[in-house]
Amino acid sequence: MAKLYSKMWLDNEEVAAWIFLTPAFIFLGVFLLYPIAYLFYLSFTAGSFTSTGVEWIGFRNYWRLLFNPDFWQVLGNTIYFTVATVILSLVIPLGLAVLLNRSLSLRGLLRSAYFLPSITSLVAAGLGFRWLFQTEGPINQLLDLFGIAPISWLGSSIWAMPVLILLSIWKQLGFNMVVFLAGLQAIPPSRYEAAELDGANSWQQFRHITLPGLRPTLVFAAITTAIFTLRSFEQVYVVTGGGPLNSTNLLVYYIYQEAFGQFDFGYAAAAATILLAIALLLVYLQLRTWGEET
């Protein structure tokens, strides 16, 4: 009898779909939706996870963010870091992908070499960059060969951020290049053949065939790179510690300092909520762009 009822339930496609989706919904609810809801709740409270508990204070944490110059400096750092990283992490891999797509020799070897940074630990990469750009490191030794005075890369409020940007570009380069290669191979070769017959040069083919054909891929790469960049923590923690003079402090590291350094969980939750809103806005723009494309 039990088997009969079970078969009747599974014969109903809608009921069967809900049965199979239930474990995924439970997983998402416990590990995604509940933490987001609790984060939003914490942003309206003050206190810590001690016997004193938390206190509801309304929008006070958001007002503190609004009038805190340190937060605005961190937000400006994050925007600068994100925009520079995203632009260069699209332009450089796209150029490499176009070159590798045309050259058949050593394509597999070069693709593996460029993709290697993507599977390298960010902590290990950060330690490597910290060694490279220290005052007596290899980069300054190389500059000395050309008669250029050593630069205090990690001790300068001007040069420290470009080091972090370079590290993030190096980390993201291989992934985006592979994505662009897949997008390029999806463009029909007949389009390029027709363009050559019409007398189009390489730049005209790239502008009128490659870029329009890669539009969905470009949107995907831009959004994923932006989200990866917004959640950057290891680079700051390992290489600069947010210094000098707070010039490399990014939003995620700022949240970490406020939550686990100052134990101001409500204020940190408010900053994390703003970061979540920015990420959701990027996802919305991606979905809207793809919807217009289709």
Rank of each mutant, 00 (worst) to 15 (best):
A149L: 10
W131Q: 10
R107L: 00
I139N: 03
L167T: 09
S156P: 00
I158Q: 14
I165R: 06
N140P: 06
L145H: 14
V163N: 02
F129Q: 09
I169S: 09
L167H: 02
L154K: 05
V163E: 02
L142P: 10
L122F: 09
P138Q: 02
R130C: 00
L116P: 02
L145Y: 12
Y114S: 06
I169N: 11
L173H: 07
W131T: 13
S121V: 08
W153I: 01
G137M: 10
P162F: 11
S152T: 13
I158Y: 13
L106S: 08
L132C: 03
R130K: 10
L154S: 07
L106C: 03
A125T: 12
K171L: 01
A113T: 07
L145I: 15
G155L: 05
L173I: 07
L116H: 03
L143I: 12
L110W: 06
L164G: 05
L166P: 00
S168A: 14
R111F: 09
L116E: 13
S118R: 00
G174P: 01
Q134D: 10
S157R: 08
L167Y: 03
I148L: 12
G147Y: 15
P150I: 06
S168Q: 13
L116M: 11
F146S: 12
P162S: 03
L110F: 10
W153D: 02
L116C: 09
L110I: 07
G108I: 03
S156N: 14
L166A: 13
V123H: 08
T120S: 03
I119C: 06
A125R: 01
A160S: 14
S156F: 01
L142M: 11
Y114L: 06
M161P: 00
Q134Y: 04
L127D: 14
G108K: 03
L166N: 08
R102Y: 10
A160N: 04
W170T: 13
S152C: 03
S152I: 09
F129S: 08
P138F: 04
S157L: 04
E136C: 01
I151S: 04
G126Y: 06
L116V: 07
I139L: 06
D144R: 15
L167N: 05
M161R: 09
P162H: 10
A149C: 04
T135R: 09
L109S: 14
L116A: 14
A113F: 11
T135G: 09
L106H: 08
Y114P: 02
R111L: 11
L127H: 10
L116R: 02
D144T: 15
L142S: 06
S168F: 04
I158K: 15
S105P: 02
G155S: 14
W159A: 09
Q141M: 11
L173W: 01
Q134A: 02
M161H: 06
N140S: 04
S152Q: 13
S118F: 02
I151G: 00
F175V: 07
Y114C: 03
